[in-house]
Simulated scan of single mutants.
Amino acid sequence: MMAERPPADLAIARNRQISSITRQLIELIQRIWRTLSAATIADDLEGEAGAAIVAAVVAGQITAAQGAQAFVAGAMAEQGASAIPEALLIAEAFGGIAPDGGPLETLLFLPAIGVQSRLAAGMTAEQAMIGGLADMARYAATSVADAGRSADQTGMTAQRGCVAYMRVVTLPACSRCIVLAGQMYSYSEGFLRHPNCDCQTLPLREAEWAAVQTPEQLYASMSEAERRRVFTVSGSDAIDAGADVGQVVNARRGMSVAHLYGRNLQVTSEATTKRSIYGGRLRRAGGEFAKVSGQRYSRSTTPRLMPEEIFRIADDRDEQLRLLRRYGYIV
Protein backbone atom coordinates (compact mmCIF):
# COMPACT_ATOMS: atom_id res chain seq x y z
CA MET A 1 0.00 0.00 0.00
CA MET A 2 1.34 3.42 -0.91
CA ALA A 3 2.27 5.64 2.02
CA GLU A 4 0.57 8.97 2.41
CA ARG A 5 2.31 11.62 0.36
CA PRO A 6 4.06 14.38 2.29
CA PRO A 7 2.84 17.94 1.75
CA ALA A 8 4.53 19.92 -1.01
CA ASP A 9 5.31 22.84 1.34
CA LEU A 10 9.05 22.14 1.32
CA ALA A 11 9.16 21.99 -2.48
CA ILE A 12 7.19 25.23 -2.73
CA ALA A 13 9.58 26.86 -0.26
CA ARG A 14 12.54 25.62 -2.31
CA ASN A 15 10.89 27.03 -5.44
CA ARG A 16 10.54 30.41 -3.71
CA GLN A 17 14.18 30.25 -2.65
CA ILE A 18 15.34 29.72 -6.24
CA SER A 19 12.92 32.38 -7.47
CA SER A 20 14.30 34.88 -4.94
CA ILE A 21 17.87 34.18 -6.07
CA THR A 22 16.79 34.61 -9.69
CA ARG A 23 14.91 37.85 -9.03
CA GLN A 24 17.91 39.44 -7.36
CA LEU A 25 20.13 38.24 -10.19
CA ILE A 26 17.85 39.67 -12.89
CA GLU A 27 17.71 43.02 -11.07
CA LEU A 28 21.52 43.13 -11.07
CA ILE A 29 21.66 42.20 -14.74
CA GLN A 30 19.15 44.93 -15.56
CA ARG A 31 21.32 47.52 -13.81
CA ILE A 32 24.36 46.42 -15.78
CA TRP A 33 22.39 46.21 -19.03
CA ARG A 34 21.23 49.81 -18.74
CA THR A 35 24.87 50.91 -19.02
CA LEU A 36 25.39 49.08 -22.33
CA SER A 37 24.91 50.26 -25.90
CA ALA A 38 23.49 48.43 -28.90
CA ALA A 39 26.35 49.78 -31.01
CA THR A 40 29.02 48.25 -28.77
CA ILE A 41 27.13 45.30 -27.27
CA ALA A 42 29.60 42.64 -28.46
CA ASP A 43 32.59 44.48 -26.98
CA ASP A 44 30.60 45.18 -23.81
CA LEU A 45 29.78 41.51 -23.22
CA GLU A 46 33.35 40.49 -23.99
CA GLY A 47 34.62 43.08 -21.52
CA GLU A 48 34.05 44.01 -17.88
CA ALA A 49 30.25 44.21 -18.13
CA GLY A 50 30.04 40.70 -19.54
CA ALA A 51 32.43 39.39 -16.90
CA ALA A 52 30.29 40.98 -14.18
CA ILE A 53 27.16 39.29 -15.55
CA VAL A 54 28.89 35.89 -15.76
CA ALA A 55 30.20 36.25 -12.20
CA ALA A 56 26.72 37.14 -10.96
CA VAL A 57 25.14 34.12 -12.65
CA VAL A 58 27.85 31.79 -11.30
CA ALA A 59 27.22 33.17 -7.81
CA GLY A 60 23.49 32.56 -8.29
CA GLN A 61 24.12 28.98 -9.40
CA ILE A 62 26.31 28.26 -6.39
CA THR A 63 23.82 29.86 -4.00
CA ALA A 64 21.03 27.73 -5.48
CA ALA A 65 23.16 24.60 -5.11
CA GLN A 66 24.06 25.45 -1.50
CA GLY A 67 20.44 25.02 -0.45
CA ALA A 68 20.05 21.57 -1.98
CA GLN A 69 21.34 19.33 0.79
CA ALA A 70 19.32 21.07 3.53
CA PHE A 71 16.21 20.83 1.32
CA VAL A 72 16.63 17.08 0.78
CA ALA A 73 17.47 16.47 4.46
CA GLY A 74 14.36 18.42 5.50
CA ALA A 75 12.15 16.37 3.21
CA MET A 76 13.58 13.12 4.56
CA ALA A 77 13.20 14.22 8.18
CA GLU A 78 9.59 15.23 7.54
CA GLN A 79 8.89 11.71 6.31
CA GLY A 80 10.58 10.03 9.26
CA ALA A 81 13.77 9.03 7.45
CA SER A 82 17.34 9.82 8.46
CA ALA A 83 18.40 13.34 7.50
CA ILE A 84 22.12 12.45 7.56
CA PRO A 85 23.62 12.29 4.05
CA GLU A 86 26.16 9.71 2.97
CA ALA A 87 28.21 12.35 1.15
CA LEU A 88 28.48 16.13 1.19
CA LEU A 89 27.57 18.14 -1.89
CA ILE A 90 30.12 20.56 -3.41
CA ALA A 91 28.05 23.59 -4.37
CA GLU A 92 30.86 25.18 -6.39
CA ALA A 93 30.82 22.20 -8.76
CA PHE A 94 27.47 23.38 -10.14
CA GLY A 95 28.63 26.91 -11.01
CA GLY A 96 29.91 28.07 -14.38
CA ILE A 97 28.11 25.42 -16.44
CA ALA A 98 25.44 26.38 -18.96
CA PRO A 99 22.22 24.32 -19.14
CA ASP A 100 23.54 22.72 -22.35
CA GLY A 101 26.72 21.60 -20.60
CA GLY A 102 28.91 24.14 -22.37
CA PRO A 103 30.74 27.20 -21.04
CA LEU A 104 28.47 29.68 -19.28
CA GLU A 105 30.43 32.53 -20.87
CA THR A 106 29.46 31.31 -24.36
CA LEU A 107 25.77 31.15 -23.47
CA LEU A 108 25.78 34.62 -21.91
CA PHE A 109 27.36 36.15 -25.01
CA LEU A 110 24.44 35.04 -27.20
CA PRO A 111 22.30 38.10 -26.27
CA ALA A 112 24.90 40.25 -28.08
CA ILE A 113 24.33 38.24 -31.24
CA GLY A 114 20.58 38.61 -30.70
CA VAL A 115 20.88 42.39 -30.44
CA GLN A 116 22.93 42.55 -33.63
CA SER A 117 20.43 40.33 -35.45
CA ARG A 118 17.55 42.56 -34.39
CA LEU A 119 19.39 45.65 -35.58
CA ALA A 120 20.05 43.98 -38.93
CA ALA A 121 16.33 43.15 -39.17
CA GLY A 122 15.45 46.84 -38.86
CA MET A 123 14.61 47.21 -35.19
CA THR A 124 15.58 50.36 -33.33
CA ALA A 125 18.49 50.24 -30.90
CA GLU A 126 16.04 50.43 -27.99
CA GLN A 127 13.96 47.52 -29.30
CA ALA A 128 17.05 45.45 -29.98
CA MET A 129 18.37 46.03 -26.46
CA ILE A 130 15.03 45.18 -24.86
CA GLY A 131 15.05 41.90 -26.75
CA GLY A 132 18.66 41.27 -25.74
CA LEU A 133 17.84 41.85 -22.08
CA ALA A 134 14.95 39.38 -22.32
CA ASP A 135 17.36 36.82 -23.78
CA MET A 136 19.91 37.42 -21.04
CA ALA A 137 17.28 37.15 -18.30
CA ARG A 138 16.02 33.86 -19.74
CA TYR A 139 19.50 32.36 -19.99
CA ALA A 140 20.43 33.50 -16.48
CA ALA A 141 17.21 32.26 -14.87
CA THR A 142 17.43 28.90 -16.61
CA SER A 143 21.08 28.47 -15.59
CA VAL A 144 20.29 29.10 -11.92
CA ALA A 145 17.19 26.89 -11.85
CA ASP A 146 19.02 24.08 -13.63
CA ALA A 147 21.98 24.25 -11.25
CA GLY A 148 19.57 24.07 -8.30
CA ARG A 149 17.72 21.06 -9.67
CA SER A 150 20.93 19.25 -10.56
CA ALA A 151 22.22 19.84 -7.04
CA ASP A 152 18.89 18.65 -5.60
CA GLN A 153 19.13 15.38 -7.51
CA THR A 154 22.73 14.91 -6.45
CA GLY A 155 21.63 15.55 -2.86
CA MET A 156 18.88 12.94 -3.23
CA THR A 157 21.45 10.40 -4.42
CA ALA A 158 23.59 11.08 -1.34
CA GLN A 159 20.56 10.40 0.90
CA ARG A 160 19.87 6.65 0.86
CA GLY A 161 16.45 7.12 2.42
CA CYS A 162 15.33 8.96 -0.71
CA VAL A 163 14.08 6.58 -3.40
CA ALA A 164 11.94 8.87 -5.54
CA TYR A 165 10.83 12.42 -6.19
CA MET A 166 7.53 14.04 -7.14
CA ARG A 167 7.27 16.92 -9.58
CA VAL A 168 5.75 20.03 -8.00
CA VAL A 169 4.44 22.63 -10.46
CA THR A 170 3.84 26.22 -9.41
CA LEU A 171 1.56 28.31 -11.62
CA PRO A 172 1.91 29.97 -14.03
CA ALA A 173 3.34 27.03 -15.95
CA CYS A 174 3.40 25.75 -19.51
CA SER A 175 1.46 22.74 -20.74
CA ARG A 176 4.60 20.60 -20.76
CA CYS A 177 4.93 21.06 -17.03
CA ILE A 178 1.24 20.92 -16.14
CA VAL A 179 0.80 17.47 -17.69
CA LEU A 180 3.63 16.22 -15.45
CA ALA A 181 2.41 17.81 -12.20
CA GLY A 182 2.34 15.37 -9.30
CA GLN A 183 4.13 12.62 -11.20
CA MET A 184 6.69 10.51 -9.36
CA TYR A 185 10.02 9.24 -10.63
CA SER A 186 12.98 7.27 -9.37
CA TYR A 187 15.39 9.58 -7.51
CA SER A 188 17.94 9.15 -10.35
CA GLU A 189 15.56 9.62 -13.27
CA GLY A 190 16.22 12.72 -15.36
CA PHE A 191 14.09 15.82 -14.70
CA LEU A 192 12.14 16.99 -17.74
CA ARG A 193 12.65 20.70 -18.17
CA HIS A 194 12.83 23.51 -20.69
CA PRO A 195 14.15 27.09 -20.75
CA ASN A 196 12.57 29.16 -17.96
CA CYS A 197 11.12 26.04 -16.31
CA ASP A 198 10.84 26.59 -12.55
CA CYS A 199 9.25 23.28 -11.54
CA GLN A 200 10.58 21.73 -8.36
CA THR A 201 11.30 18.24 -7.07
CA LEU A 202 9.98 16.90 -3.76
CA PRO A 203 12.26 14.09 -2.45
CA LEU A 204 10.29 11.03 -1.34
CA ARG A 205 10.90 8.03 0.85
CA GLU A 206 8.16 5.94 -0.79
CA ALA A 207 9.29 2.75 -2.50
CA GLU A 208 6.29 2.10 -4.72
CA TRP A 209 4.06 4.28 -6.87
CA ALA A 210 2.36 1.81 -9.20
CA ALA A 211 -0.85 3.85 -9.34
CA VAL A 212 0.92 6.91 -10.76
CA GLN A 213 1.05 7.27 -14.53
CA THR A 214 4.39 7.46 -16.28
CA PRO A 215 5.15 10.10 -18.94
CA GLU A 216 4.66 7.40 -21.58
CA GLN A 217 1.22 6.55 -20.18
CA LEU A 218 0.30 10.22 -20.11
CA TYR A 219 1.40 10.59 -23.73
CA ALA A 220 -0.64 7.54 -24.75
CA SER A 221 -3.77 9.05 -23.17
CA MET A 222 -3.49 12.33 -25.10
CA SER A 223 -5.30 13.07 -28.33
CA GLU A 224 -3.23 13.49 -31.48
CA ALA A 225 -3.98 17.23 -31.51
CA GLU A 226 -2.87 17.62 -27.89
CA ARG A 227 0.31 15.62 -28.54
CA ARG A 228 1.25 17.92 -31.40
CA ARG A 229 0.42 21.01 -29.38
CA VAL A 230 2.44 19.94 -26.34
CA PHE A 231 5.37 18.16 -27.99
CA THR A 232 5.30 19.84 -31.45
CA VAL A 233 4.66 17.93 -34.67
CA SER A 234 8.23 16.69 -35.06
CA GLY A 235 8.47 15.80 -31.36
CA SER A 236 5.27 13.76 -31.38
CA ASP A 237 6.34 12.04 -34.60
CA ALA A 238 9.64 11.15 -32.97
CA ILE A 239 7.90 9.73 -29.88
CA ASP A 240 5.49 7.76 -32.06
CA ALA A 241 8.52 6.33 -33.85
CA GLY A 242 9.98 5.13 -30.53
CA ALA A 243 11.94 8.12 -29.19
CA ASP A 244 12.13 8.55 -25.43
CA VAL A 245 9.73 11.21 -24.11
CA GLY A 246 12.40 12.61 -21.82
CA GLN A 247 14.88 13.04 -24.65
CA VAL A 248 12.29 14.90 -26.72
CA VAL A 249 11.16 17.24 -23.95
CA ASN A 250 14.38 17.71 -22.02
CA ALA A 251 15.79 21.17 -22.55
CA ARG A 252 19.40 20.11 -22.08
CA ARG A 253 20.65 19.99 -25.64
CA GLY A 254 23.96 20.73 -27.26
CA MET A 255 26.36 19.11 -24.81
CA SER A 256 29.44 17.61 -26.37
CA VAL A 257 29.61 13.84 -26.67
CA ALA A 258 32.49 11.59 -25.64
CA HIS A 259 32.91 7.84 -25.85
CA LEU A 260 33.24 6.62 -22.27
CA TYR A 261 32.41 3.35 -20.54
CA GLY A 262 31.72 1.73 -23.91
CA ARG A 263 29.07 4.24 -25.05
CA ASN A 264 28.59 7.82 -26.24
CA LEU A 265 27.85 10.07 -23.26
CA GLN A 266 27.17 13.76 -22.72
CA VAL A 267 30.04 15.58 -21.04
CA THR A 268 31.08 19.11 -20.13
CA SER A 269 34.43 20.85 -20.32
CA GLU A 270 33.46 23.26 -17.56
CA ALA A 271 35.20 23.20 -14.17
CA THR A 272 37.96 21.03 -15.64
CA THR A 273 40.91 23.45 -15.27
CA LYS A 274 43.75 22.71 -12.88
CA ARG A 275 42.35 25.41 -10.58
CA SER A 276 38.89 23.80 -10.28
CA ILE A 277 37.88 21.33 -7.55
CA TYR A 278 37.47 18.51 -10.05
CA GLY A 279 40.67 19.49 -11.86
CA GLY A 280 42.60 19.54 -8.60
CA ARG A 281 41.49 16.03 -7.75
CA LEU A 282 42.32 14.85 -11.25
CA ARG A 283 45.76 16.46 -11.08
CA ARG A 284 46.53 14.71 -7.78
CA ALA A 285 45.45 11.43 -9.36
CA GLY A 286 47.91 11.91 -12.21
CA GLY A 287 45.42 13.21 -14.80
CA GLU A 288 46.66 14.94 -17.93
CA PHE A 289 45.99 18.57 -18.87
CA ALA A 290 46.49 20.53 -22.07
CA LYS A 291 46.51 24.24 -22.93
CA VAL A 292 43.49 25.31 -24.98
CA SER A 293 44.03 28.10 -27.50
CA GLY A 294 42.53 31.38 -26.33
CA GLN A 295 42.00 30.18 -22.74
CA ARG A 296 44.06 31.14 -19.72
CA TYR A 297 44.28 27.80 -17.92
CA SER A 298 45.04 24.27 -19.02
CA ARG A 299 42.07 21.92 -19.07
CA SER A 300 41.79 18.23 -18.36
CA THR A 301 42.01 15.97 -21.38
CA THR A 302 39.57 13.65 -19.59
CA PRO A 303 35.90 14.57 -20.24
CA ARG A 304 33.74 15.33 -17.22
CA LEU A 305 30.36 13.59 -17.03
CA MET A 306 27.27 15.66 -16.28
CA PRO A 307 25.26 14.50 -13.20
CA GLU A 308 22.27 13.38 -15.28
CA GLU A 309 24.48 11.13 -17.40
CA ILE A 310 25.85 9.57 -14.23
CA PHE A 311 22.31 8.82 -13.07
CA ARG A 312 21.49 7.35 -16.47
CA ILE A 313 24.42 4.97 -16.83
CA ALA A 314 25.12 3.89 -13.24
CA ASP A 315 23.45 0.61 -12.27
CA ASP A 316 22.93 1.37 -8.58
CA ARG A 317 23.31 4.06 -5.93
CA ASP A 318 26.82 2.94 -4.93
CA GLU A 319 28.02 3.37 -8.51
CA GLN A 320 26.24 6.74 -8.78
CA LEU A 321 27.95 7.96 -5.61
CA ARG A 322 31.33 6.69 -6.86
CA LEU A 323 30.98 8.58 -10.14
CA LEU A 324 29.62 11.73 -8.48
CA ARG A 325 32.73 11.73 -6.28
CA ARG A 326 35.03 11.03 -9.21
CA TYR A 327 33.67 13.94 -11.20
CA GLY A 328 33.77 16.36 -8.29
CA TYR A 329 30.10 16.85 -7.32
CA ILE A 330 30.28 15.37 -3.80
CA VAL A 331 32.88 14.52 -1.17
Rank of each mutant, 00 (worst) to 15 (best):
M1S: 13
M2L: 13
M2P: 13
E4L: 13
R14A: 05
N15C: 02
R16W: 05
T22I: 14
T22C: 04
L25P: 01
L28H: 10
I29D: 02
Q30L: 06
R31E: 09
I32Q: 09
I32D: 04
A38Q: 07
A39K: 14
A39D: 14
A39I: 02
I41G: 08
D44W: 02
L45A: 07
G47W: 04
G47H: 03
A51S: 13
A59V: 00
A59K: 11
T63N: 10
A65K: 00
Q66P: 03
Q69V: 12
Q69G: 12
Q69L: 12
F71M: 12
V72Y: 05
M76Y: 03
A81L: 10
S82R: 07
S82N: 10
I84W: 09
E86P: 12
A87V: 12
L88W: 12
I90Q: 12
A91L: 05
F94S: 04
G95D: 07
A98G: 03
D100E: 06
T106K: 13
L110S: 13
R118W: 08
L119T: 00
L119V: 00
A121W: 01
A121Q: 00
M123Q: 14
A125V: 01
A128M: 02
L133P: 02
A140W: 10
A140Y: 05
A140D: 08
A141G: 12
A145F: 13
D146Q: 14
S150F: 05
S150Q: 15
S150N: 14
S150Y: 08
A151C: 02
Q153E: 08
G161C: 01
M166T: 04
R167W: 04
V169I: 14
L171W: 01
S175W: 11
S175Y: 06
R176Y: 09
V179N: 02
A181R: 12
Q183E: 07
S186D: 15
S188D: 15
S188C: 07
E189P: 06
G190A: 15
G190I: 15
C199L: 03
L204Y: 09
R205Q: 11
E206C: 11
E208N: 14
A211H: 13
Q217V: 08
L218Y: 08
A220Q: 13
M222K: 04
S223I: 10
E224F: 05
E224K: 11
R227S: 03
R228V: 01
R228I: 07
V233R: 02
G235P: 01
A238L: 10
I239V: 10
D240N: 15
V245Y: 06
V248F: 04
R253F: 01
R253G: 07
V257T: 11
Y261M: 07
G262T: 00
N264D: 15
S276F: 10
I277H: 11
G279D: 02
R281W: 07
R281E: 01
R283V: 01
G286D: 00
G287K: 03
G287P: 06
E288T: 13
F289T: 02
R299S: 10
L305Q: 02
E308N: 10
R317Q: 14
D318I: 12
I330D: 02
